[in-house]
Design a binder for these strands. Structure first.
Lengths: 144, 144
DNA sequence: TATTAATCGGACAAAATTGTCCGAAATAAA
DNA sequence: TTTATTTCGGACAATTTTGTCCGATTAATA
């Protein structure tokens, strides 16, 4: 479904959100440890999120990644997916046709539109804050 | 969503179904031409489908691929997807956790279950015959 | 000011996926 | 029986994705 980069990106963003709620800025090393992901590859992904203004980074000692209290609610998963995987999952044809739309649909077009509309709605309405809350109360997990 | 191999596999299977309805057995070359896919790679995928008893192959001159009239209704897309991509799309965690279930869910678990249930139902209820019918009446397409 | 700890970014490496080639086996037909 | 045409299957190649390394840059602090 999502690329590895995207999976790590979402997990990392949720962890950053959780820690930012406590006022803690976190390093790539800590993030990778806590979400059980490869450090350097995760760093690349975080740079992507930073360049897309989804999270904030600070260089130097005491530096790391954080996210504003307000942004936690504004940032929805579709923004992260789009920043990392692009919009092929939102727009591409399920059977790989270059040009597939209502006028010239693949055999699966209509049924795929349904599935994707659901996915799109779900990702577009799920905020980092919401996901971090489940983590905070110990209901959900980011590794294993 | 699906791998390239799987996209080709589904398109090829639908084309084979369409031609089998007319009693025509088709070669890899014709299939690849009609679904606009790489010949040799498509051949590999068709071997997979053959080994999984989803389609039938006949060697030698006048040989090629076909599917029984009855099987067109029995074969659902989930069987093709499972044969080619395995069941990671049906069972794997959306955020890539090795172990993710109701007892130890990732933050997206419940929402993902919904999406996947939809996808699973759709793939499990869509037959090759059904898709071939749309093609036959010129309502849907397999290339471009 | 020097040191240290952090991200940034480019080059590189490994692994997985996608795609190609070709000889072997099968089989229909001349 | 020979030839021609097809799938089968293994080896190989190219591309994309995933993952690593390291020097440059930034900035806090001793």
């Amino acid at each position: 479904m999502f690329s590895k980069a995207c999976e790590y990106g979402i997990r990392a963003a949720v962890y950053i959100t959780l820690q930012s709620l406590e006022g803690r800025r976190v390093s790539v090393n800590e993030i990778a440890e806590e979400i059980d992901s490869p450090i350097a590859f995760t760093a690349k992904t975080l740079q992507l999120l930073t360049r897309n203004d989804i999270i904030k980074s600070v260089k130097g000692p005491t530096g790391g990644f954080e996210i504003d209290r307000e942004e936690m609610n504004n940032v929805k998963l579709n923004m992260i997916v789009k920043a990392i995987d692009g919009d092929k999952i939102f727009k591409g044809c399920g059977l790989g046709l270059k040009e597939c739309n209502a006028n010239k649909p693949c055999p699966l077009h209509d049924k795929f539109v349904d599935i994707r509309t659901n996915l799109s709605k779900m990702l577009g309405s799920t905020s980092l804050y919401e996901l971090a809350m489940g983590l905070e109360v110990g209901l959900t997990f980011l590794k294993r």
